[in-house]
Design a protein around this nucleic acid. Sequence first.
DNA 1: ACCCAGGGTCATA
DNA 2: TATGACCATGGG
Length: 217
Amino acid sequence: MIYKLYLTLFKKFGEQHWWPAYNKEEIMIGAILTQNTAWNNVEKAIKNLKAKNVCSIKAIANMPVEDIEILIKPSGFYKQKAKRLKNFCAYLLANYGENFIECMQKKEIFELRNELLKIKGIGRETADSILLYVFEKAIFVIDTYTRRIYDALKDDNSDVFKMDYDELREIFENKIKKHCKEEDLVKIYNEYHALIVRFGKEHKGKDYKDDIKGLIS
DNA sequence: ACCCAGGGTCATA
DNA sequence: TATGACCATGGG
């Protein structure tokens, strides 16, 4: 069912070209700003950063938090996020230097994941978004949309919204792996998560359990 | 005037 | 380990 839903969504919506960002640094910034926040608001924040020419890891690392707060205000939780964003950017430069992307890219996936999870403000979904969309590692991103989707798909009466993040992530990964070649996983995880978000947005506020069942039947 | 959005941390029991 | 409080803006 999980893989079939992917094929159906792909047929319906096509390629999503994720993550929506100009470059990899912008993906990382957006991944933090979008925490529990509508993407529309994140776009405003990123627009503000770009208007000041500071939409980069280095610029943010060297900016006073107060200035970051003002620019990212539309994304909500702006005081927390400004502090965490700056701390994150400073961490990358301090530990990897200017070529942080290439350096981190070389690391083994779960080593890098554990490292990201130690940084304050980087939880599992944010870490996995960065791993998948920046570093192109084969890891599936679970978000609230995914839980609702799985709630509609599952055949038992487990509480999907209380289910452990990694447990649910492995359910999706294992199902997908049964149908795909190893070298295609990154592309499929990328596309599938994007499609789930796309579907979720189009059904905002609605109970889409029946729509999901209609799609795969 | 409400509700919620592409989460995460921290205090408490 | 598992709840609950808290963070905050903008669109529907």
